[in-house]
Write a protein that binds this DNA or RNA. Structure first.
Lengths: 121, 121
DNA sequence: GGGCTGCACAACCAAGAGGTTGACAACCCG
DNA sequence: CGGGTTGTCAACCTCTTGGTTGTGCAGCCC
């Protein structure tokens, strides 16, 4: 749906079945039938899942006679890890420089201690 | 939708708007209005996005008078990176031990050379 | 060449996601 | 207390998603 690559990758991995397939493919290439075996769903459903993974660039499919072996393209993972690491680091950095942030705050209450809700009466 | 935590996290980050919000929150906490400002969508839509992020455990919302400051919970990222790293490493490892994998194969054609399609006649 | 296997494409359907508007609750300010 | 500000909840609409079944094509096997 979303045109950008990162969205497609995240979206593709948001499904447990597809993550499971990726896990399976990390061990080695597999055919559609092999991938479909563990699941209750129809072969067509699996084929759809593979299309999603392929559109996300997570897998590639080659031809080998009438079989279509599926191959994991692990380098796409880097796209995610880069994004994640960037903001995680940024957030951690922010914790480290908490004093600066507090100094920049107006005259708000300093959240040094988490205050509980006040008595309702 | 999917009950498991990892799916919720991936799904939450599959939306560019929500990733953008996370990027914004990495700089520092913000109110809903502040977060909504850059976007064309209604405040309610932003509120929904935040709910998705909150359900994924990516952000938390506190109370501060009538304001609801949103805070990034970066540690959830670890959940993803762990998953990703696991299978990326596994896939990379597989490349390294390609010979073993080939040896373990049955009597299939060894894909040492990518054979082109046979002559159709 | 006929049939079986492996897989994809198309049409359809139920459920969910993301957007909208409208109403309203909680809180500060005067 | 009344009014503005901040944000949520509910109802509704539409498009997408994940599933189904049906059909059909490409390629081995006999």
């Amino acid at each position: 749906m979303a045109a950008d690559a990162l969205s497609r990758v995240f979206s593709a991995l948001a499904d447990p079945t597809r993550r499971d397939m990726v896990a399976r493919l990390a061990v080695g290439d597999a055919t559609v039938n092999e991938l479909a075996a563990p699941y209750e769903v129809s072969l067509q459903a699996v084929s759809k899942h593979l299309k999603v993974l392929e559109d996300a660039g997570l897998v590639s499919r080659s031809r080998e006679a009438q079989r279509r072996p599926v191959h994991l393209e692990a380098q796409v993972f880097d796209l995610m890890t880069k994004w994640i690491e960037r903001y995680r680091r940024q957030a951690e950095e922010r914790y480290r420089r908490l004093d600066d942030v507090l100094a920049a705050m107006p005259d708000d209450v300093a959240p040094t201690a988490a205050q509980e809700e006040g008595t309702p009466s």
